[in-house]
Amino acid sequence: MAVKAPDRARCIQALDDLVKRCDGVNAAMLALRDGRPYAERSGGRVEPGKFAAMASSLLALGSSVLRELSAGTLDHVLVEGGAGKLVVANVPGSHGLLILAVLASHDARLGLVLGQAKTCALEVAAAFPPNGE
């Protein structure tokens, strides 16, 4: 079944809302599953093409590792470093088409970033037309 295109304006609004709602979020991106940028809000902090490609690689590697370890399906990938945190997750309801990547500063609260990323992903999911439309 061909996936219908989401409402792009709603997707961008969801990214805007995430950046506004969550202190410390520096960049938010929607990437296509094969590593191409779809929409982003980063204020020039990241190079979108590379960010999208890295997000899709991380998600695919995370899924492969869980599969190999019989550890279920992937919910999200979290990478923490001394100067920042990165959360990458599939957008539910997008038939595996879209990936959400959120880059936050090191002092951002992890629970908040994860929760807001999930909320954003659901908002993006709602931007896809229901089946049959």
């Binding site: 599953r33 094969d34 191409r36 590697l61 899924s63 492969s64 595996g96 088409l97």
Partner: peptide, 11 residues
């Protein structure tokens, strides 16, 4: 180990 996904472009 594979990390294949469906293509979304002209590929």
């Amino acid at each position: 180990v594979t990390t294949d996904v469906g293509c979304t472009d002209e590929l």
